[in-house]
Design a protein around this nucleic acid. Structure first.
Lengths: 194, 194
DNA sequence: TTTCTTTCTTGAACTAGATTAAGAAAACTA
DNA sequence: TAGTTTTCTTAATCTAGTTCAAGAAAGAAA
């Protein structure tokens, strides 16, 4: 049996669920084990479910027309992830999502999410707050990319997400921050010399 | 008397409002006229209301520690804008918002928004969808900034927001796209020569 | 342990875009 | 209408970060 207590606690920080709501919600969730390196979503296919991470670490990235990959987000235990556009509009995704470590996840299928939102308005509130907070984070990331140089962005990243370093190869951190692994090496070398 | 018909129509594309909901909502809205160049919000102060644009054009920007401004968003008729973080958490804003043209706006004060969300769950749904869509747009903007060069970003911007060009000085478009006005001049010169 | 694969580092050559400073063109203002 | 301010352009110089290519280190596999 899966343990949803951490997930429920995080939801309860924003809304108050009745026992019936909890039953409805938890029966919708489908647990899955993902091995390191495995894909959970691939670009070109429709995202069938929203993803909640119980343990491990996932990475979502975009492959551009030159074949370069760009990491758009990581997801650790307690985070929701996936391609929101593909999920909500049920159109093919432009992103792929892979496990950076052995991971446990919960899937919330599209039809269930729709039903949950229609039947339990409190979940509208929960996801409104979730998306609202994520939107603020994305705005801050855009600002950072414009106003800070590569070294500052790397420092801020390490401060903001210290737990990610244990899972994420440096080349993906460089990609997430918008520069090359070679340049990250230079930054790290420079910091060692100080 | 202000005309809220366009706003209500845009809301009705996502939810179905009862007459009582409409009355409650519209009585909360405070109309204001903003002259070109005037500030609607200034960094350092708490954002007291969420902003809906009826006509004209607004710009929200961040001034970094070197005194450089970075445009984070524009807002045209039919768009919502403002510093979401400052608004929801009632903390001082790091952004300023100014009118790029004479504009009419509607203010939705924080206390009213809270009451609206608590009393009419349909508005939770509306704002959930609004933030969800905005989040997708922000993700796409981040991807673009990483995977496209300055010229491609300028071309995509012109395609995506053709109506903005009439209001927005080129230097702010350059800022929004993450490069200097001088470089935008070079891009435009190059395009003329072709 | 050895082998294979992936990740990280180093350095040299290069380039997209920044900076600075000036003048030209537009847009307000009176 | 001229005067003032803001926006846009041009060109020379500069630099943060890229590209390419190679080797070193670290992990995974067996």
């Amino acid at each position: 049996m899966i343990n949803t207590s951490v997930l429920l606690a995080s939801i309860n920080r924003h809304i108050t669920l009745e026992p019936a709501d909890i039953v409805l919600f938890t029966t919708m969730l489908q647990p899955a084990q993902i091995k390191q390196g495995e894909f959970i979503e691939t670009s070109g296919t429709v995202t069938p479910h929203f993803i909640h991470v119980l343990s491990g670490c996932l990475m979502t990235y975009y492959s551009d027309k030159n074949g370069h990959d760009h990491v758009i987000q990581f997801a650790m235990a307690g985070w929701w992830t996936g391609d929101l556009h593909s999920f909500t509009e049920q159109v093919p995704s432009i992103y792929s999502t892979r496990a950076l470590a052995d991971s446990e996840v919960l899937y919330l299928p599209k039809a269930d999410m729709d039903r949950l939102l229609a039947e339990v308005p409190k979940f509208e509130r929960f996801f409104r707050i979730l998306f609202q907070n994520s939107l603020v984070t994305h705005q801050q990331r855009i600002i950072q990319n414009f106003s800070a140089n590569a070294e500052e962005r790397y420092e801020n990243f390490r401060k903001k997400y210290p737990s990610l370093e244990q899972y994420v190869p440096l080349k993906y951190i460089a990609s997430y921050l918008g520069f090359t692994p070679e340049f990250l090496s230079k930054i790290r070398r420079k910091q060692l010399d100080r």
